[in-house]
């Protein structure tokens, strides 16, 4: 089954430690800082970061010997775009119906 990006993302989000890691990576943050901030073990943090990266919720870059992680909002924007499109489409239909009915009943 080919998982859709949004499904993968929401699955990744269905874990409180991973949501906490996202919250902590609003600014670029190293694994060591995340270990200190969360009290999780380094292997646990690394595993969660991998899941978040595979879900496109976080990005990583190298800075010398360190890896720095930061939240990636692109996918979140995708959710927003979907909903914007839904409501815009519905309001277009509403306009068409409202103006048609109005034309038919107003002298």
């Amino acid at each position: 089954m080919a998982a859709r990006p949004l499904d993968v993302a929401f699955k990744a989000l269905a874990h409180p430690d991973r949501r906490r890691l996202l919250d902590l990576t609003r600014e670029e943050t190293s694994v060591g800082e995340l270990v200190n901030a969360t009290g999780l073990t380094q292997p646990a943090v690394s595993q969660h970061l991998r899941t978040l990266r595979e879900a496109r919720l976080i990005t990583a870059r190298s800075d010398g010997t360190r890896r720095l992680y930061r939240v990636d909002t692109e996918l979140l924007d995708e959710v927003r775009r979907y909903l914007d499109g839904f409501w815009t489409d519905r309001l277009g239909r509403l306009k068409a119906v409202a103006e048609t009915i109005d034309d038919g009943t107003t002298p």
Binding site: L83, W87, T88, K95, V97, A98, E99, D102
Partner: peptide
């Protein structure tokens, strides 16, 4: 907002509210 949309409709406000 998670999403926002807006439109102007050439029909009275009571009629549009009733459609919702």
């Amino acid at each position: 907002g998670l999403a926002e949309a807006e439109i102007e409709i050439g029909a009275p406000i009571d009629r549009v509210f009733e459609l919702w």
